[in-house]
């Protein structure tokens, strides 16, 4: 293996740090749902997604060893493009389909209001 590739393998310490962080970031969201310590579901969902996102970053850094410098920057570059596409696809479809559902299924009062128009 070249020195270049070796730099990307990480060390025992970095793998263990990644593992411990992943365990913590896994146990807390499961506890939030199974232990039901919170009354507010919105806060619980926010905790799940923030910690899930944080754990993804931990995996990218400590396990996948993505760095700005690896592969002359092409690795980080292609990941950036993928994340951009994912954000567009996910947020776009959720947004559009939410609006579609809101507008395609008029509530009863809305129907009545339209019916009573002069």
């Amino acid at each position: 293996m070249s020195d270049h590739a070796k730099g990307g393998h990480g060390s025992l310490k970095s793998y263990l740090i990644g593992f411990v962080l992943s365990v913590i970031l896994t146990v807390i969201p499961f506890w939030v749902v199974m232990g039901e310590p919170l009354d507010n579901k919105g806060v619980a969902v926010a905790i799940i997604f923030i910690l899930g996102g944080a754990q993804m970053l931990v995996h990218i850094h400590y396990f996948l060893h993505v760095t700005i410098k690896a592969e002359q920057g092409w690795q980080a570059m292609s990941m950036g493009l993928t994340i951009l596409l994912l954000v567009i696809v996910l947020s776009g479809s959720i947004w559009v389909m939410f609006n579609l559902e809101e507008n395609m299924m008029p509530a009863h009062e809305q129907i009545e209001r339209v019916r009573n128009l002069p």
Binding site: H9, G10, L16, F19, S22
Partner: peptide, 9 residues
């Protein structure tokens, strides 16, 4: 995941 990391090391 962590055991695969150990294999690489």
């Amino acid at each position: 995941s962590i055991t695969y990391g150990f294999a690489v090391l």
